[in-house]
């Protein structure tokens, strides 16, 4: 952790602004009939300071597998880098696409094998021959196949909402809506989540990204709409 020496001279400096860069975050991924939707907010904080307000927390591992990152920004970037490298190597050796489960397994190996050194909550989701699938890899490096996963500090605020609104038979558009609304509500209550909403839909046609700027999000309870 950076010490206060680094920002000497500034009275308020210290802890609040020089903490580890962390993705106090809301991330989410949902499986639907023909694929998966991943989503994330765009806030990266360093203590109370928003270090980056348009961060991309959805990182490709392969063309058809993406990773949602939460926890320490540097730790998860490092993990993503290694997993990308190993998967590229594996894909070359096999001469064909790698399964989502294998990609998730690789990410788990990194997270589990270095659990004492890392602060990483991951969601791996993608599309392969067996359709869409979502894998949650929470802090200790447990690997779980789930129909949908939420993660990051913001997820605590929307667990109930997600339990209520998730359905196993959602269409692509319904899944996308589910993801956006979940993120909207999390960002409305979690000060560590905010900014914009990024989504990635992966299906047989490949991956497609969407970006919703913060002001375009529908306001929730007690919020004002952005001026036109």
């Amino acid at each position: 952790m950076a010490s206060s020496r680094l920002v000497a001279g500034s009275a308020v400096a210290d802890a609040e602004f020089s903490r580890d860069i962390s993705l106090g975050t809301t991330i989410i991924a949902v499986q639907f009939a023909g694929g998966v939707v991943l989503g994330a907010d765009s806030r990266t904080s360093s203590g109370s300071y928003v270090a980056n307000r348009t961060q991309d927390k959805i990182t490709p591992l392969l063309d058809h597998v993406y990773l949602c990152r939460s926890g320490s920004a540097s730790d998860t970037q490092a993990i993503a880098g290694y997993v990308q490298y190993y998967l590229a190597q594996l894909q070359a050796e096999r001469g064909g696409p790698v399964r989502v489960e294998t990609a998730a397994m690789m990410a788990m190996q990194m997270a589990y094998g270095n659990k004492n050194a890392l602060q990483a909550g991951l969601i791996v989701a993608g599309f392969d021959a067996d359709g869409g699938s979502v894998y949650a890899i929470p802090l200790g490096g447990t690997l779980l196949r789930v129909p949908f996963a939420i993660g990051g500090s913001g997820s605590a605020y929307i667990t109930g909402w997600c339990d209520k609104n998730w359905r196993g038979d959602m269409s692509r558009d319904e899944a996308l809506d589910f993801v956006r609304n979940a993120l909207r509500h999390a960002m409305a209550r979690d000060s560590s989540s905010g900014g914009c909403v990024r989504t990635v839909v992966i299906d047989a046609a490949g991956a497609s990204r969407e970006f919703i700027p913060g002001p375009k999000l529908q306001p929730t309870y007690d919020e004002l709409p952005a001026p036109a």
């Binding site: 489960e101 690789m106 190996q109």
Partner: peptide, 9 residues
Amino acid sequence: YGEPIPGRV
């Protein structure tokens, strides 16, 4: 890799 080795490999 957590999966059985493919025959070709």
